[in-house]
Amino acid sequence: MLRILTALVLLPLAQALAEPTHRLFVTNEAGDSVTVIDTRSGEVEATVPVGGRPRGIGFSPDRKLVYVALGNDNAIGVVNTASLKLERTIPAGSDPEAFAVHPDGTIYLSNEDEGLATALNPESGEILAEIKVGLEPEGVGVSPDGQQVLVTSESSNMVHVISVADNSLVANILVGARPREVAFSPDGKHFWVTSEVAGHVSKVDRATNRIVVANKQLRRQINPRVKPKGILLSHDGERLYVSMGRGNSIAALDPETLAVLETVETGVRTWGIALSRDGKRLYAANGPDATVSVVDTTTMSEIKTIPTGEMPWGVALDD
């Protein structure tokens, strides 16, 4: 009962978004820092030291806080979106890599070296659940209705489907080798998943938990070094943007057929991606280049590169 009341109270709060700062936050995996970029000027505004090996990044539901997964510190770092202060770190189990934030505020994260998914209440610091998944869990996604969480296991080649109600596994879906990230359709009927080593992007029907279409020819269609990693759907649902890792590019795919519509060359090892609210700008982290690419999606061209710290990994945009 208390939980239900809490949810009722939290939900209206979650919708009271803070004023956007128009800042892009970039985790620097080897720099132990977060680069803060003012997207209106395209200039670096600050570099915030956060701790060991920051990779996954995301906002609290009200966007007042930026969370970063600190793999080497076994913690989630909490940065104030407005003041840019590292407010605190929350113990998060061993080697947290990536996470997604549920609309109720719970952080669902992957513990890469423990084969676990963890549900963490960032306010109390309480670990609400630990769910055993495959080896090297990585990408995490919360379904649009908040009822399921997906976790990919990179070395076990599966997407695990977890029920939020009781933290149980409801399905384990084999996909191409080294699944990295997931993205949902807004109606919740499908999700897409990238498979880095196989070179695939697959579309999964959530009613049956089966792959309905997969593009396994991306290396032939784009270039032989393609390794699909980051994935997100355009706001109009017309384009699926996929970063290609060592393929040094981002592709726009047809979300239905997964056919390649357009590609844009970016930097070396294009990894995490974020899309502006107006849908016109894509931001992508290029690890060894230590840059962020700014892509104009209307022309699919790179219009700027911005320097970051060492080995940028993930990006999150507060606009």
Partner: peptide, 10 residues
């Protein structure tokens, strides 16, 4: 064609 040896390339 996509076996994973934990060495990057398939």
């Amino acid at each position: 064609d996509g076996l994973d040896g934990q060495k990057g390339d398939p």
